[in-house]
Design a protein around this nucleic acid. Structure first.
Lengths: 230, 230
DNA sequence: GATTGAACATACAGACATGTTTGTATGGCG
DNA sequence: CGCCATACAAACATGTCTGTATGTTCAATC
């Protein structure tokens, strides 16, 4: 279980980075499974192959560790889901790619850490909760702009205010991603849900053969939505 | 300071029921806000106007209190959301009424207690988590049957397996209900999301005037029915 | 009106987790 | 080769929360 079992003799910087990474990953798993209050740092350190001393040497305290986990998850999510989706041209395609990409992202257990922390600190005033809320709120703002843009171009039918619609959009993406994570139709159900939130009609043909496309690039041959000024 | 401010001189049974009800409500709020691990029984008792002694006199322990809260929330939810929705004839209408009714139910803060506990105990083996999971799983099973029935009658288009679709349905209803709780378009967004999950086309005309009175059945009484007796 | 038991408050003990301190071994560098 | 900083372990100190035990007030029956 040790981070580096045999080759412990390396440069200090890489050693530090290695243990930090192992502790981060273990903390992410622990936070995702048990939540902030329930997770014990001794278990986190033990799962990473270290002791609490190492953890407190790398991180100031529990809160600092959780904030680092949040930042790390945010980075990986942006790289694996956010950026590929943002590369689409049409706002509708960005939103749909976001939903499908997040469903794929949720196939790992680490994905639950954001929901766990968000729910745990909802309505409180805790730095970790603020960090999570800031990320989610930023995502909501971006989605609201995409929804507004898609509506003004006619690709998205009218509906509730963009901000409120975006809030529902993000929560739906998060919820369906986690609930059916890893099941065979996760991306299809995510797309179905967000289509509904956006007021789009169901996808024309949902052959469930290519719904199982993993992380890479997601060629948009399936949900090529006709956006001719509804 | 007392639960009943002026009329403290009543029969002992009603006194007991009154304090139990006050403690239950305070515990529901506390669980919903802070979660099981974070909530402190002293705060719960203080918010209800009592001390921890009263709480431990009425409930065996923290777990028992949480289980009672879960049962209480389940009863009120079934009475206010589940039963009115189940009165519909068509399975599609039941599902849609469920979504809208839950959005209305979520306008109270107590509604978050189920999600909070479910997320907190996800992947653990705790009695409270099992109780919540049992309720949610039962709801998923019911919705899966409704989805299957609606599909075989042609009212719901085909899609992923009913069980998986029902899982996404329930999580979407829960998520959108909480995220946009109390906002002006909560029921409309809930209906939009579940329509998408079910593969239904968008609602024909969504003039937001009649979204506030969707079903005509759910009497939105704020005061909870006190039909619980020890 | 006194007694008995329930409703409730207060005080106490144990458990557990965080954060700190101290100690040890290893790597970097002159 | 020797000195020092760093990585890490292990014990310690502190605070908080649960659960229990004890005490006090109040209602119900004689």
């Amino acid at each position: 279980m040790a981070a580096v079992s045999d080759d412990a003799s390396r440069t200090q910087a890489s050693r530090r980075a290695s243990t930090r990474s192992a502790l981060l990953e273990a903390a992410a798993r622990g936070l995702s499974r048990y939540g902030y209050a329930n997770v014990a740092l001794e278990g986190v350190a033990a799962e990473a192959g270290y002791s609490r001393g190492a953890l407190y040497h790398l991180f100031a305290n529990k809160e600092d560790l959780a904030l680092a986990v949040v930042a790390w998850v945010d980075e990986t999510w942006t790289a694996e889901v956010g950026d590929p989706a943002a590369a689409r041209a049409e706002p509708v395609d960005v939103l749909l790619a976001l939903a499908r990409g997040h469903a794929v992202y949720c196939r790992r257990d680490v994905a639950r850490v954001m929901q766990t922390l968000r729910v745990e600190f909802l309505g409180q005033d805790h730095p970790v909760g603020r960090a999570v809320a800031k990320i989610i709120d930023g995502l909501v703002v971006d989605c609201a702009e995409l929804i507004a843009a898609g509506r003004s171009s006619g690709a998205i039918p009218p509906g509730p205010p963009p901000q409120e619609t975006a809030t529902a959009f993000v929560s739906v993406v998060e919820a369906v991603g986690i609930s059916v994570a890893g099941q065979s139709h996760d991306t299809e159900l995510a797309e179905r849900a967000v289509r509904g939130v956006l007021g789009l009609p169901p996808a024309p043909i949902s052959t469930d053969a290519q719904t199982r496309e993993p992380t890479g690039r997601q060629t948009n041959q399936k949900g090529r939505s006709r956006h001719e000024t509804a």
